[in-house]
């Protein structure tokens, strides 16, 4: 049905047209524990083009967060490399902005000061900072909330603050690890809409990690399906739905077809993951 370029052999999967901003090449990450060595990420390669949204989808425990940390420079890969606009990454870099799954706003700072955080640390002048903060808060739909504290906002609003904080630093690549996972269904859909709108407005190159198929299809140009243990690239699916997209697209027939296609890829992996989790239950301490 849809032509996705497969990459199970580990070869670099090229971005669909356009120059790649992010190149992830042959990343391997192992965890050595007392009992065993777990290969969490096994020779994963892909690229993301300028302005493109690539989603990575896979069952729980397949290595998505590990990959997120490696690409963001918070964890070191055992093999492989990450290149942004031709520059080899070594550790955290302003070229990559990260948005985390967990609650990550600073509760002691106001919303405005949260968004200003990285700019302030980087020594940007106050006037310029204020201007930027205002701009990005407006972009995420939180105009007028500068003086509020995170505790006064809803979970979805706090996650938007975190997104604004990351975007305000002007990353080339926006990297998000299940940013909506902690939110309820409606909030998640609305926030997905918002992210889509922002992404289109900024033409922001985005790598989104998710375990929700609908979210992946709704937001992405391409969806990368990961295998469970070791985490490999199973397939990359092109999503040829028209842009600009809104949440309304979720009801369409094509949307359903994409979801079904990705689910058929994912089903085997997900059940593997589930069996694995169940097999470990008796030994769980």
């Amino acid at each position: 049905m849809t032509g996705g370029s497969a990459g199970e052999d580990g070869s670099t999967v090229e971005a669909a047209g356009g120059t790649p901003v992010l190149r992830v090449e042959n990343i391997v990450k192992r965890f050595v524990t007392d009992s065993a060595t777990v290969t969490a990420v096994d020779h994963v390669s892909f690229t993301v083009a300028q302005g493109e949204v690539l989603s990575i989808i896979g069952p729980s425990g397949c290595g998505k967060s590990t990959l997120f940390n490696v690409i963001g420079g918070l964890a070191e890969a055992d093999e492989g490399r990450v290149v942004v606009e031709g520059r080899l990454m070594s550790g955290p870099d302003p070229a990559i902005g990260m948005v985390f799954q967990e609650e990550s706003t600073f509760p002691w700072r106001t919303v405005g000061d949260n968004v200003a955080f990285a700019l302030e640390v980087a020594g940007m002048a106050r006037a310029e900072r204020t201007k930027r903060v205002r701009h990005y808060l407006e972009l995420v739909g939180l105009k007028g909330f500068e003086q509020h504290h995170p505790a006064q906002l809803s979970g979805g609003m706090r996650q938007r603050v975190a997104i604004a904080r990351t975007l305000a630093f002007g990353p080339k690549v926006l990297l998000m690890d299940e940013p909506f996972a902690a939110l309820d269904e409606q909030t998640r859909l609305l926030l997905g809409d918002k992210v889509l709108q922002i992404q289109q407005e900024l033409a922001q190159t985005t790598l989104l990690i998710t375990h929700s198929i609908a979210e992946a299809v709704q937001l992405s140009d391409r969806v990368l399906v990961m295998t469970y243990r070791p985490g490999r690239v199973k397939r990359i699916v092109d999503i040829k739905l028209p842009r600009p997209r809104t949440a309304e697209i979720i009801g369409s027939k094509d949307f359903g077809l994409y979801v079904a296609e990705i689910w058929s890829d994912l089903r085997g992996e997900a059940s593997l993951g589930m069996k694995d989790a169940e097999a470990h239950l008796p030994q769980a301490e």
Binding site: P92, M98, E103, S104, A118, V121, A162
Partner: peptide, 17 residues
């Protein structure tokens, strides 16, 4: 929370920052 420190590390803060 570890994630707050991760946010700082992602923005390349020094250990003292």
């Amino acid at each position: 929370p570890k994630v707050l420190l991760d946010v700082g590390r992602s923005f390349s803060l020094s250990p003292s920052q």
